[in-house]
Structures are given as structure tokens and as C-alpha cells.
Simulated scan of single mutants.
Amino acid sequence: MPELRVGQRRFQVAAQSNLLDALLGNGINVPHSCRAGSCHACLVRCVEGEAHDRQPEALATDKRAEGWRLACQCQVVGDLSVEPFDPQRDGLAAKVMAVDWPSPQVLRLRLQPARPLRYRAGQHLLLWHGDVARPYSLASLPGEDDWLEFHIDCRQPGAFCDAARSLQVGDSLRLGELRGGALQYDADWQTRPIWLLAAGTGLAPLYGVLREALRQEHRGAIRLLHLAHEPAEHYLASELEALAEAHANLQVELITAAQLPAALAELRLVSRQTLALLCGQPKALDSFARRLYMAGLPRGQMFADAFLTHA
């Protein structure tokens, strides 16, 4: 049986064991969330030995060269020594600049990193509060906002969102890996119609992408649809309405779950050049994608980022 080592601790584990399960099963606290290689909460560094990586493309080349792996995607095939990601050593410090509740269930968090962070609208970042980690999409716009902004859905309990409820201005967090995500604005899209379909806090990255498109003076029509459980949860309603008033090519629709079937039925493809960016919980994304496909939008012109359930 392979030997798994973490610091001075040694364990015998079954060959082909999932690395994350082996670590958790032996009392090593490794944050994890999606188990699909998307959230990157379970980063570990291989110090000696090598695991079988089922999804090597999930990490950037430079991260892999440094020995980093996603524990949820690795199998133990031989003796292996690993070092879990340490936010105090490996992460970037950030201070809470502002925290408020734009709706009863959404916490808006603004952070100031210890050094400037290069990112693009639509990316997501791993946030650490103590030993709890969770990826969140950036709602801020690089080069315009002086903070990193995140929208945290607190409708359901979760280790990070429960801890975030008590955050105050001046508190410290740590930042982990910055991820690409599927959502971004491409300057080549200038004249193409764009549909932005968001469910809940799936609005966060699309809010950044929308403002990036408007900053680049997008000339095509932009249609944004925000699905919320109830009207009070359209937490950026005033900001979106102000943007729509300032930009004639932007149409904003705020709908609830009860209004969703009718709203989707009204989606009509007016151009084969239309692009759609979707973000939110998988169930909502499936509804969006099915309707867009039925309306004639090719799947290659849909870009989606699913928000997975809290661990």
C-alpha cells in the first residue's frame, strides 16, 4: 500500500485512492467544495512523488510546475508527500473595505488586497476566512473600481457565508487562486447582440462583464435578464436601471421564478450573431440553455459558469 505523508504524519492508503478522500479520512483538514476541479479549494503541493492527475488542464502550467495539484482530481498511485495550501503562507492578504446587505439574502463584500491584483471582469477568486475557503466571482471592474467586490448568497447555510455574516470593516481575509471562468467580454464582439442571463448572485460576474462591455462602448444590443426568488432579491436593481437609462442599447429585465416560463418564452433570436453568457445555479442554467437552443442559438455561442452548492 502507498504511503501518504503530510509533514511528520504518515499514513498507509489503498492504491488508487482519491487523494482528497485519503487526506480527509486521515484527519487532514483540506478545504473542498465542488469535487469537480472547478473551485480549486483543495489545492495541495506534491513535495515528493507524483499522483495520477485526472484533470491536469484545470491548473495553469506555472502552478503545475510548482507541484500544485487539485486533491479531488488526483489518485494516489505510489508513495507521496504533499503539503496542503496554507493561506497564511501561500495566500495574499486583504482587508475588508466595506460590507453591506443590498438585499435581505445577499451580502456585498469589498476587499482591498495587500498588493494590486491583475484580473479581468468575470473571473473568480478563492477567498479564505480562517481555514474555510470558497470561490466567489468578482463583480468589480478592473481599472475602475478601487476594490475587489463579491456578492455572497446567504439564503442557505454554508461554512464561508455563515462566517462572512460577522465580517466588519478592517477585518482580514486571505486570497487564494484567481481563476479564469467562462465569462468575459471580447473586444471582437463590439457589434454582436449579447444576452446576459443570471440567476441569483450569478449576476455578480455578469455585472462586471456588462460594465466592461459598456466601457468599451459596445455597439450591439445588450439584453440582461436577472432571475431572483422574489422581487426583494433583485439586489442590483437600481444600479442596473441607472445603466439602462445611460445606455440606449441596454435592456434590463428583472423577473422572479413565477415569471420565468413566460420570460423565456418571449426570447426571440433576432440575429444569428447573438452571444449568450449564463451564470447561476445549474437548474436555472439548464432552463436558460434549453430555451436559447430552442430559439435557434447554437451551443457554441453560449458561455456558462455554474455556481455549485455549498459544501
Score class of each variant (00 low, 15 high):
145 D>K: 13
149 E>Q: 13
150 F>Q: 02
153 D>N: 14
154 C>V: 10
155 R>N: 06
156 Q>Y: 10
156 Q>W: 08
156 Q>D: 09
156 Q>H: 15
157 P>V: 06
157 P>K: 04
158 G>Q: 00
161 C>V: 15
163 A>F: 03
163 A>I: 01
164 A>C: 08
165 R>K: 12
165 R>C: 05
167 L>W: 03
168 Q>D: 00
170 G>W: 06
171 D>L: 04
175 L>I: 05
176 G>Y: 01
177 E>R: 08
178 L>I: 04
178 L>Q: 06
179 R>S: 15
180 G>A: 11
181 G>Y: 04
183 L>H: 07
184 Q>A: 12
187 A>W: 11
190 Q>R: 13
192 R>I: 00
194 I>P: 04
195 W>Y: 09
197 L>V: 10
200 G>F: 10
202 G>D: 09
202 G>C: 11
205 P>W: 00
205 P>A: 07
206 L>T: 06
208 G>M: 08
210 L>K: 12
211 R>A: 00
211 R>S: 01
212 E>F: 00
212 E>W: 07
216 Q>F: 04
218 H>G: 09
219 R>I: 07
222 I>M: 08
224 L>N: 01
224 L>Y: 00
224 L>S: 03
225 L>T: 14
226 H>E: 01
228 A>I: 05
228 A>N: 02
228 A>T: 02
232 A>R: 15
232 A>H: 11
233 E>A: 07
234 H>V: 12
235 Y>N: 07
235 Y>I: 06
237 A>T: 01
238 S>T: 11
238 S>Q: 15
239 E>D: 12
241 E>N: 14
244 A>W: 02
246 A>R: 14
247 H>S: 02
248 A>N: 02
249 N>F: 03
249 N>Y: 06
251 Q>I: 09
251 Q>G: 10
252 V>L: 08
252 V>F: 04
252 V>N: 03
254 L>N: 03
254 L>V: 08
255 I>M: 05
255 I>A: 05
256 T>G: 08
257 A>H: 04
258 A>M: 09
260 L>E: 13
263 A>P: 01
263 A>D: 06
263 A>W: 01
263 A>G: 11
264 L>R: 07
265 A>F: 08
265 A>C: 10
265 A>R: 09
266 E>L: 12
266 E>M: 10
266 E>I: 08
268 R>P: 09
269 L>Y: 10
271 S>R: 01
272 R>G: 13
273 Q>P: 01
274 T>W: 03
275 L>P: 09
276 A>V: 14
277 L>A: 06
279 C>Y: 01
279 C>S: 14
279 C>E: 02
279 C>L: 12
280 G>T: 12
281 Q>G: 11
284 A>C: 13
285 L>D: 01
286 D>K: 15
288 F>K: 07
288 F>L: 13
288 F>N: 06
291 R>Y: 02
292 L>S: 07
292 L>G: 06
